[in-house]
Design a protein around this nucleic acid. Structure first.
Length: 257
DNA sequence: AACATGAGCAACCGCCGACCG
DNA sequence: TCGGTCGGCGGTTGCTCATGT
C-alpha cells in the first residue's frame, strides 16, 4: 500500500531556511511549544514539511544549543561514546548538552574520523590499524566488521535494555545553565545512559546483585563526579527508591573500547 | 583574478518503531 | 490484531566557503 508522504511536497519550500521562516518558527514554538510537527507548518504559516520544521528547530533554532567549536574534552567524550554506542548519534548527543545529533554526526565524519586515523585507530571498530591500513583483526576468522561492541553485551541488547529502563527519579538541577541537566527532549544528561551491561539473568535490580563491584558508566567514560555526571544524584535517589539506577560491568583485563 | 578542489555543514530522504483507533 | 499516522533517527546529498594553483 505504501506509505503516505509526511506532507504535500508540491506546496512546500525546500532548501535553506530564510530569516523570516526562522522567525515564524521560533515565534510559533515560543507561543505554543513543541507539539504536532505535522500540523505545525500550517498553523505557523510556513510552507515547509513538518519534518523540516522539526529538524530546523532541533538542530539550529533551539535556544539551548551550544554553537562553536568542540572542545578537546568533547572530542574525547564523543570518541568514547562512539566506541561504546556506535553510530547512535542521538544517544551520544544526549550526553553532550547543547550539541545535536546532526552536529556530532557531521563533526565525527569531518574531524574525528581523521583524528582517529591519524592515531592509527580504525574509526569504525576503535581498534588499531595495521601498517597497511587494514584493521588489526580483519583477518581473524571470527572477526566481523560489525559496529563497535560494548563491554559486555551486544549493542542491540544494550539499547534494548536502555529503552526498557524505567523512568528516572526527578532530576536535580545541577547548575544555573538553562539546559544543563537535560536535552530539549527532557532527557536527563547522564542517567539515560543507564546501561545495564551485566550479563546473565536479571537479578534484583540493585547494584549489589552483581558479582563484580559495579561502577557508574560515567566513571568508565571518565567524567563520573564531574559536571556532566549526575549519577550521584541518581545513586541517592536509587538508594531511596531501590529502583531505577543501573550499572555496567567494568572492563575485563585486556578489554578495551 | 579566475578557476579547481576540498572541507564543513545544513538539510533532505527513507526507514523504523511507538502509538492509537 | 491490524493498519495508519507520526516522531525520531541515521545515512546521504548538495550547497557554500576557504584554500591552493
Amino acid at each position: 500500500m505504501g506509505r503516505s508522504p509526511c506532507c504535500e511536497k508540491e506546496h512546500t519550500n525546500k532548501g535553506a531556511w530564510t530569516k523570516e521562516e526562522d522567525q515564524r518558527l521560533i515565534a510559533y514554538i515560543r507561543a505554543n511549544g513543541e507539539g504536532c510537527w505535522r500540523s505545525l507548518p500550517k498553523s505557523a504559516g510556513l510552507l515547509r514539511c513538518g519534518k523540516s520544521c522539526r529538524l530546523r528547530w532541533m538542530n539550529y533554532l533551539r535556544p539551548d544549543l551550544k554553537r562553536g567549536n568542540f572542545t578537546g574534552d568533547e572530542d574525547e567524550l564523543i570518541i568514547r561514546l562512539h566506541a561504546l554506542l556506535g553510530n547512535k548519534w542521538s544517544l551520544i548527543a544526549g550526553q553532550l548538552p547543547g550539541r545535536t545529533d546532526n552536529e556530532i554526526k557531521n563533526y565525527w565524519n569531518t574531524h574525528i574520523k581523521r583524528k582517529l586515523l591519524s592515531r592509527g585507530m580504525d574509526p569504525h571498530t576503535h581498534r588499531p590499524l595495521t601498517a597497511d591500513g587494514a584493521n588489526a583483526n580483519a583477518n581473524a576468522p571470527s572477526y566481523r566488521p560489525a559496529p563497535p561492541q560494548p563491554i559486555a553485551v551486544p549493542a542491540r541488547d544494550m539499547l534494548t535494555m536502555m529503552t526498557k529502563t524505567p523512568p528516572q527519579p526527578a532530576q536535580v538541577e545541577s547548575s544555573d545553565e538553562g539546559s544543563s541537566g537535560a536535552t530539549s527532549t527532557g532527557e536527563p544528561r547522564c542517567p539515560d545512559l543507564n546501561l545495564d551491561l551485566s550479563v546473565g539473568p536479571p537479578a534484583a535490580d540493585t547494584p549489589t546483585s552483581h558479582s563484580q563491584q559495579p561502577i557508574c558508566l560515567c566513571n568508565h567514560l571518565g567524567f563520573h563526579g564531574g559536571e556532566a555526571c549526575s549519577c550521584r544524584q541518581a545513586e541517592s535517589a536509587a538508594s531511596q527508591s531501590q529502583r531505577g539506577f543501573r550499572y555496567f560491568r567494568p572492563l575485563e583485563e585486556g578489554q578495551y573500547i
